[in-house]
Design a protein around this nucleic acid. Structure first.
Lengths: 231, 231
DNA sequence: GCCTGAGTTTGTGGTGCGACAAAGAACCTG
DNA sequence: CAGGTTCTTTGTCGCACCACAAACTCAGGC
């Protein structure tokens, strides 16, 4: 296990209200692990024995249909808790977590969830707030899938990506991790072919720039207009 | 306010572990209200000032798109908490709640949520378990919307309806509240026309019986096969 | 460098399902 | 029971999008 520094947690919402000693305690009980890109952290349906905090990197949380198609439920940016099945009294993970990049994460055994909630001020509040945001986003995606055309859904997905995990680059906002046309199709319920066509069209009118596994949004306003979302 | 009897809560999961005195306290702080069918209980975007327990009747939780289309997020069967925005640190309701039938519900001001969680054994556990189930269902619906054809989605929606709120009748399981083709289309992301055609076809082969606002599933197995869900 | 595989682009055709339309059936009110 | 409203059924048409197919491009390994 890597040596852990208190400053790792000091500024992260679930732990920001804790004293130095409390942070020390939290860290003492954590396991730290580094993952290669495209590694599996936990798997859908398996015993939910730990919960996680993403320190560095990006995570894709994925569900697989009976037919073997994958759909992306969620992206986790650094600093967030994930795999928090215990918060919802689940004993198996409802989805599979893959790393999108090289990744560093802490984890704790589920039996510590309750003590954390009871003991640490702000931990419960922040955890449940995160859950609320995710629920909200899922509801929004359901609404989009149920009512809107592919172009709007892809535009909305791109906006969310750069909003949640975008890094400022010279000519716009870039998705902060490698992402393929296939991945985007798995977020929006379409095919990689359709996504490719949309990106090509948008590139022609200067809305995005893309390369292999990289996407830069150069005109977020245009996507806003297309998707009906303000940003 | 109606007179409240302790037996109302004794057998409901969030309160089942409470003593008589505790139940008394919970009831003393509750407001009880009766609603007509198709009444609005709370509205999306408005201040989330109370949380609710459905004693009798059925609730539809609905989201409205910018274009004014409605999509049904959730059905609440009797005995469940709803409008539990405070559990997720939200200060506005993320959706609107309509009654599907005549309805009786209790409610409490949000400031009591935290005390309930802290004080009453089992309350937090049961509330968060419910939330987990809803999250799971939403994830399943996203997956369906993203990958499956209309027929499968409608079959799956019907199965979920009779599973969660079905009442045994002579020739099968009947959806326990009035429901139109339009409502089903708003659960599955299609049009009432397509739903009508599907129900007609299924009626012809003896899978369902339907009348105005009523649906009876007479052959759940057939729907299972269509939807790929076991029931 | 060359080779292989993964990711992307673009074309062509077919179709599931939405859009539009219109009429019928059941219920509600006075 | 007349008249309106709400819910349902059924038809026809068009097209957005998927399925299939093939070629192109880039990155990494040997």
């Amino acid at each position: 296990m890597a040596k852990l520094d208190e400053s790792l947690l000091r500024d992260l919402p679930p732990f920001s209200q804790l004293s130095k000693g409390q942070i020390r305690d939290v860290l003492d009980q954590a396991s730290s692990k580094r993952y290669d890109p495209e590694a599996e952290i936990f798997r859908e349906g398996y015993e939910a024995d730990r919960f996680y905090l993403l320190l560095d990197g990006h995570i894709r949380v994925v569900r697989t249909t009976p037919e073997g198609e994958q759909i992306i439920a969620l992206h986790i940016p650094p600093g967030q808790l994930f795999g928090i099945a215990p918060a919802l009294q689940r004993d198996t993970y409802p989805a599979t977590a893959f790393t999108a990049t090289e990744t560093l994460a802490l984890s704790w055994p589920v039996r510590l969830w309750e003590p954390f909630v009871q003991t640490y001020p702000g931990f419960a509040t922040e955890s449940y707030k995160t859950l609320g945001l995710r629920l909200d986003e899922m509801q929004t995606r359901i609404t989009e899938l149920a009512t809107q055309a592919v172009e709007r859904r892809v535009a909305a997905a791109l906006l969310r990506l750069v909003h949640q995990s975008g890094s400022q680059v010279e000519d716009g906002l870039e998705v902060a991790f490698p992402i393929t046309r296939k991945h985007i199709s798995e977020m929006t319920g379409t095919t990689l072919h359709t996504v490719s066509r949309l990106l090509s069209a948008w590139e022609k009118v200067g809305t995005v720039k893309s390369a292999r596994k990289r996407i830069v949004v150069t005109n977020a306003h245009h996507l806003s207009t297309l998707s009906g979302i303000e940003c």
